[in-house]
């Protein structure tokens, strides 16, 4: 399959070839900023978070109660029917332990991203957030966090909330 590779062997470069200017490069930085209005459903959802409440949408045809909320039911493909306040408690559907930041740099104290199934929603339905108070090392976190574990939201003080997903600081273990 590969006799052509003799013709096109490729020229591999090292990062240092770029950094030390051993090959010619041209650089460009994206100067782009975005401002998204939060939309109809998420606008209401974030206003709810600002009030310390988690709001879900319910569809009367399939009966599902879902977060993150949307104004349509994608299953039934119709407008869904009402807002439902659900609890600020739930269970860990899955979790991980992250030592890597957005730019692939590393951190010593990991964050603990998780999918939280929210109490009051249809079983299995939830959103992604972070877990807190579960330790600062991998060993501690793995000893502490279990799939299915009950958790509750820790809210930012009302005066500091901005109407964003981060109005919930994180979810912490609770007796359940």
């Amino acid at each position: 399959m590969s006799h052509h590779l003799k013709e096109f062997p490729g020229v591999p470069l090292k990062d240092s070839d770029i950094q030390e200017g051993k090959v010619l490069t041209t650089r460009w930085e994206v100067k782009a900023e975005y401002a998204w209005d939060t939309g109809v459903a998420l606008g209401e959802f974030f206003a709810g978070l600002k009030d310390g409440r988690i709001l879900a949408r319910q569809c009367d045809r399939c009966g599902r109660i879902v977060v993150p909320p949307r104004m349509f039911c994608e299953w039934c493909h119709r407008p869904n029917d009402r807002w439902v306040e659900v609890k600020d408690t739930g269970r860990v559907n899955t979790f991980s332990v992250s030592f890597v930041l957005w730019d692939a740099s590393r951190v010593k104290v990991p964050s603990v991203p998780a999918v939280i199934e929210i109490d009051g929603c249809t079983p299995g339905v939830g959103f992604m957030h972070l877990l807190g108070n579960v330790g600062t090392t991998l060993e501690e976190i793995l000893a502490r966090v279990k799939i299915g574990m009950p958790v509750k939201a820790v809210w930012r003080p009302a005066s500091e909330r901005t109407g964003a997903i981060t109005d919930i600081v994180h979810f912490v273990p609770r007796e359940g």
């Binding site: 998420l42 974030f46 993150p68 890597v100 930041l101 991203p113």
Partner: peptide, 10 residues
Amino acid sequence: QFTERPLGVN
């Protein structure tokens, strides 16, 4: 961009 990126995703 609303519900996930602000959490510091990778």
